[in-house]
Write a protein that binds this DNA or RNA. Structure first.
Lengths: 268, 268
DNA sequence: CTCAATTTGTTCGTATGTATG
DNA sequence: ACATACATACGAACAAATTGA
């Protein structure tokens, strides 16, 4: 261990992983541009206060990921085509949210008919008499990006069970004229993947996740929709318009007159 | 390595750390309640498909953190007083944001007078002629929770340099009658701590962070305030009101007399 | 009180991974 | 590339504390 292990030992994570993590960040943020030659091993040794071999291990990790390639006698270069992270935009207003998920096709894992009420937080309203639990995985480009645990009030689900199994529940609710949505909110915290999540999201156990708790409350103050959604952290981006007058195109042009548009299937 | 290394080897992070990470999550989420006896070593071995010693190492980590205590012959228990995470609420509307940071005292690191323009993203407007760079750390209960890199348009800073050094820049801008705020937005992604961030935030290198990019654009389309803020991930909570009619108490009951009256745009 | 069942604690041997100089 | 030291992980066996019958 180096003499300057100051902030390293706050973590029990292998040094070369930590170094690789920082270098990955620099590449993804553009601080190290595609095609650019990065610092020499000696410079990196000094910067990170680690042994030469440790730096090389870190570089090895990023080479495996295709982000770097080292060449003897020349130096180490950032790959020309660093795959830009494809951000999945998490919308922050009802209309945009409905619009953005309209064509999603949930890949259902299970449907449990008689389940306990979901864990409700402050301002989540009161629990309905009965819930069904819908569990699903969301895909994009055949890659899983979120795991959904949805508690749906039983009587809401019964209004159109088939549609709830086929289309995003939120869109379906928005299209049900019998349902009066009074409040809707979500909270987001950063967590880490448990074994099941890790398995389904194809990430490591303990990898960072965004945990979203989304609740819809009807005009009787009942929480009719309680979704706990776990997103992979590496594909999530929130965009928050602080003044509510964003000049973005589209977004809310069409008043969601009608129900979900019969989602077209994307993946198998 | 066990034969069932299925999702483990997606990460090169030590197994016992991964296991500890999952158990910590269960405690913090309340799935393992305070005072409760957790599964036996044998059960945990089976669940995580790891050796006994590995489970014990994970438990050791959480014992060091004061979250668990094991007793020979009895079992392993969750501590009675698991310190509930005190969330720092990240507001999502202009008025609430201003209000929430009003009394913050930034702990300045540096002020650079002649710096290059900040990296601007889509919809961030055009760059000002000159910027100053203000770097600071935010504290709460003497614990650092965020690192701020603020690019402030030079001419804005010059309007009241002393105040900008003393109070949160956003509040200051909101109180400047000369400044017309046209748009304001922020984006949030999940990242990982580089060495400097790790050092200042007192977390491990590579620990997950919330990276917030907050931009204020004036009526000439110039980005006058560009803040890149890195939060510790374990103290951040976003609360998003999807319909904009949240029945939350307080928050805005007191008509913040001095606050900016200008931007009041809000959808019904 | 003793016994047996349960549960955590300890140790050994081995193999591989991590980090230094 | 090498020699060294220490960390990680496995499986298995055994020891020690607790509990309740």
């Amino acid at each position: 261990m180096s003499k300057l292990l100051k902030s390293y030992d706050r973590s029990r994570i292998p040094l070369y992983i930590q170094v690789a993590s920082v270098m990955r960040q620099r590449i993804q943020s553009g601080q190290w541009a595609p095609g650019q030659r990065i610092s020499t091993l000696e410079e990196l040794e000094r910067e990170f206060q680690v042994a030469r071999v440790t730096v090389r291990q870190a570089i090895g990790v990023l080479q495996d990921d295709g982000l770097l390639h080292a060449q003897q006698g020349r130096g180490t270069y950032v790959s020309d085509l660093t795959p830009s992270r494809h951000w999945f935009k998490l919308e922050t207003t009802w209309d945009e949210l409905i619009e953005s998920i309209r064509d999603n096709v949930p890949q259902h894992i299970s449907l449990e008919e008689n389940v306990a009420a979901p864990a409700l937080q402050a301002n989540d309203g009161k629990a309905a008499d009965a819930y069904v639990l819908l569990r699903s995985v969301q895909y994009r480009d055949n890659e899983p990006y979120s795991l959904v645990n949805l508690h749906l009030a039983r009587y809401i689900f019964d209004l159109n069970p088939k549609l709830f199994m086929r289309a995003p529940a939120l869109s379906t609710i928005a299209g049900l004229s019998q349902v009066k949505v009074a409040y809707a909110h979500q909270t987001l915290v950063i967590g880490s993947a448990d074994p099941e999540t890790a398995d389904r999201m194809m990430v490591a156990i303990g990898a960072p996740t965004a945990e979203c708790h989304c609740v819809v409350i009807d005009d009787t103050g009942t929480a009719i929709y309680v979704a706990d959604i776990i997103y992979r952290s590496d594909c999530i981006k929130l965009q928050i318009d602080l003044l509510g007058n964003a000049p973005t195109p589209a977004a809310r042009m069409a008043p969601t007159e009608k129900a979900p548009k019969r989602p077209k299937a994307k993946q198998a």
